[in-house]
Amino acid sequence: MPPGIQLIALAFALFMAYLTYVDFRRRRFGVAALGFWAIVWGGLAVVSLVPALFVQLSQALRLARPMDLAVVLGMLILSGATYHNFASIHTANRQLERLVREIALSKLEGNQPPTRPRPDPSASDVEIHG
């Protein structure tokens, strides 16, 4: 790895490790998440400082350089994190929608008594397939 790239990677790893620590102190996540990201940033720092340590591992995985190993691992982690974000945001969206609807309808239930019993959905005479 060229020294310039090594320095950039090291600076990035240190900065991200600092951000992770600050967010942990702000209780945005727990010890497990702190440990996971510490391994990620620590690994990046080690690869950028002493890439020679990973030469053998790279060769065993039929990769030409330790840099390629770092890139491949980075892409795997990025893919996993992206999927995790997608699932979390999807869940949060659903929860938000349910919460907002419940807040809106709670006003109705509090102030507007039903004029007749709520229709029983199972009493529908429309044939439901799906």
């Binding site: 929608e97 907002v100 609807r101 809106a104 309808l105 109705l108 239930e109 507007q112 039903p114 004029t115 007749r116 019993p117 709520r118 229709p119």
Partner: peptide
């Protein structure tokens, strides 16, 4: 879509 669903559920609650 969400607003209409809330409104429709309210309509059902009102009978």
């Amino acid at each position: 879509g969400a607003a209409l669903r809330t409104g429709t559920e309210a309509a059902l609650l009102l009978g």
